[in-house]
């Protein structure tokens, strides 16, 4: 099975590899998958409190090339988007963009789950903010 040019590009030059401080209230962290399944994705977003937009995103992935490419692409796509726009990203769009074969569809599902988990984590943090912080 040959890899698509786009998968190879993301594998060789992954975008946005790295980590944010996970205790930062403006950061949302999503970790999905499990080592024994062969895939773990950690995706983080950093939200600009003034605009409400995702101003930066980072990922780290343990998984095959398609899993790495899916998460790399996900970080690229959510940057500059609002939370609501990011939630609209569907795994099928990732499959299409990276030309993933059927056996690799689960990689795209995991990337979609990672986006949702990161956003969920961010929203939970915001809901639990002390009153004086949210009054700003």
């Amino acid at each position: 099975m040959a890899y698509s040019t786009k998968v190879l590009d993301h594998y060789n030059n992954p975008r946005n590899v790295g980590s944010f401080e996970k205790d930062d209230p403006l950061v949302g962290t999503g970790v999905v998958g499990a080592p024994e399944c062969g895939d773990v994705m950690k995706l983080q977003i950093k939200v600009n409190p003034l605009t409400g937009l995702i101003e930066d995103a980072k990922f780290k992935t343990f998984g095959c090339g398609s899993a790495i490419a899916s998460s790399s692409l996900a970080t690229e796509w959510i940057k500059g988007k609002s939370i609501d726009q990011a939630l609209e990203i569907r795994n099928t769009e990732i499959v299409e963009e990276l030309a993933l074969p059927p056996v690799k569809v689960h990689c795209s599902v995991l990337a979609e789950d990672a986006i949702k988990a990161a956003i969920h984590n961010y929203q939970e943090k915001q809901a639990n903010q002390p009153a004086e912080a949210s009054a700003n």
């Binding site: 992954p14 590899v17 980590s19 970790v31 080592p35 773990v40 994705m41 950690k42 990922f59 780290k60 992935t61 343990f62 790495i68």
Partner: peptide, 8 residues
């Protein structure tokens, strides 16, 4: 490993 959350 540089991009592995498990290694981190």
């Amino acid at each position: 490993r540089d991009m592995s959350p498990l290694y981190e």
